[in-house]
Amino acid sequence: MLEVKSLTKRYGQFEAVTSVDFALEPGEIMGFIGSNGAGKTTTIKMLATLLEPTNGSASLNGRPLDGNDLEIRKQIGYMPDFFGLYEDIKVWEYLDMFATLYGVEVNDRPRVIDEVLELTDLGFKKQAFARSLSRGMQQRLCLARCLVHNPTMLLLDEPASGLDPRARAELKDLIGELGRMGKIVIVSSHILPELADFSTVVGIIERGQMLAFGKVNDVVRSLTPAKKIQVKLLDRGAEASMFLHSKEHVSATQFLNPNEFRFDFTGTMEDQHLLLKAMVDAGFPIVEFMDEEADLEDLFMQVTKGALN
């Protein structure tokens, strides 16, 4: 389990990260969201023991994440946002070098290298020079490097930056698989749709402060008390809108076209059922009546609106 308590990083007068708290269980994938310069990378570097916190602490399975404790690093796989590969090195040699550095037994190395290459779908490039790989393959190789010592926690800083849509989709699948393997995964990004698919937990950071943290649905619910419902009719759109406004829990109607609109609804599921029944009983020709899921992008915009002003 990863526990982060009051983690703070100050550079002179500037506070890059302010008292961040959160905890993650094995198998949880945290989408770490924030705009550029929000404090994501600084937080991740502190968790990777590459930056000493000014205040606060973090521990992994009860062991402090301390830069002087070299053993704890064997439980961490860190993928920086910008990384370089050695030019004159083959894919398997690159992994072998890091396996050596992480103390993987010499007899286990060939098997481990084959396994991580298979997991990252790079087995066919084992003998290729790292410099010859495409950007997406290099990202996957870096991820394979993070996995070579079978870490408990993975810290992936902007892993999908610069990738084409196909490579992004492959990376998403891979990260989901890592979560299913029971690893704690923190994935930072400012591109929200790519996080939405596989994150079980979301943390929103802005100007160094964690503005929201929790399971995606819980955060959505806590931050958006009014759900949006979209209605599509064959006709009588304006009349239906006026009808709804006469009902409880309904507000803020917004027309998408004359016979299609969405509105905010603050009632329960029971209330929603009664509302739909009332519309049907009133004879409105309803074609669609559905909840609109609040996505991470909406959530992020809503949460950070105050912080950015």
Partner: peptide, 10 residues
């Protein structure tokens, strides 16, 4: 830009 990977190693 490979130094960080090295510094993160145990």
């Amino acid at each position: 830009r490979s130094l960080e990977q090295l510094l993160a190693a145990p």
